[in-house]
Nucleic acid binder design. Structure first.
Lengths: 188, 188
DNA sequence: GTCTATAATTCGATAGAC
DNA sequence: GTCTATCGAATTATAGAC
């Protein structure tokens, strides 16, 4: 074989992109270093060279930063819209969220990471918008968002995949808003 | 080794129980026929004998029937309570739902099965309670229930694991009720 | 019905040449 | 920086003895 042109940065990125795509589609276990290398058009040994091992590749492919906009001072409706919009950005942007969602189902480590994203990254911003019990309210918002993502992207329910952004807002926005601001919710 | 006492039915059940427990904890890929056999106190070859292969064992371990109570004529609050109660029964009863939830994340086949449970088993009962757009409303109810289960059982968020049945009712019951009966939801 | 032995495959990882 | 060759481990699955 005529060797691939030398390009460390490009090779690394090609591997990472292919890895992220496969982790997003199949989860951690079903992805092999060989399959990633093949999709990236690269020798399998290079995957080891740049990411040490399969776990190292996954760790980078699943690195997720969920920066929520500042929600202070916004009304319930505006908060909900902002959350739905950010949700769409995250999923359109890159499949990283799906990588973490799929892997969390069968890996305790990935589950911890996704929980940390929910609690430590999204949590504080959600807490500023919660009228009380911030931990409960943030977790409930997360449960509806992750559940929606699961049924739409993982299960592929037609009723949800058919919805555009405005429809998603109209359906689940009020739920998110109430989880944060409805005082009638929760135990008396 | 002194052979195990001959007991086809008992051996089969022991294998199935151990398999379901491990699939519920680790998903499909991480479970091995050897690990199931070890937990069941059985020779690995017997797993093959009774279930043909790993997929056959999984198929039985993930067989789920979600029978919903008749919801016709019930008010929104009563419907929501019935759904939450059934949810708790399902998860307390056996880990089958968790088996399917975990596996669906990384297996297209399992995802189809879980979607079928949602659409074909729970769907019709939910549709009788929906004021309109039954497909959308049923899918949204499913998204909140699956999302809650995911964050509580898979991610283990303390705020949700700490809730007892009454608290879960008080928090997500109104959401489920509104998804079925609130005419202000969805696109105008 | 239960168990032993092993075939066949697949995969992660390493060593070292180019 | 890229690639070849291969090792060693783990796993599913089979054949057949007891």
């Amino acid at each position: 074989m005529t060797p691939r042109p030398r390009d460390a940065a490009g090779t690394r990125r090609a591997i990472l992109d292919a890895g992220r795509a496969q982790f997003a589609r199949d989860g951690f276990e079903r992805v092999t270093i060989r399959s990633v290398a093949a999709e990236a058009g690269v020798d399998p040994a290079l995957v080891m060279r740049y990411f040490t091992n399969k776990a190292g590749l996954f760790a980078e492919a699943a690195a997720l930063e969920v920066v929520l906009p500042d929600l202070t001072g916004l009304g319930p409706g505006a908060i909900a819209d902002a959350l739905v919009d950010r949700f769409f950005e995250l999923f359109d942007d890159s499949p990283t969220f799906l990588v973490l969602l799929r892997a969390a189902a069968t890996s305790g480590e990935a589950a911890e990471r996704l929980l940390a994203v929910l609690l430590e990254q999204a949590g504080p911003a959600l807490a500023t918008a919660a009228v009380d019990r911030p931990a409960e309210r943030a977790a409930l918002v997360g449960s509806q968002i992750l559940g929606f993502a699961f049924v739409r992207f993982v299960l592929g329910a037609p009723a949800l995949t058919a919805m555009d952004r405005a429809e998603v807002r109209a359906w689940i926005g009020p739920t998110l808003a109430r989880y944060l601001t409805d005082r009638d919710l929760g135990p008396a």
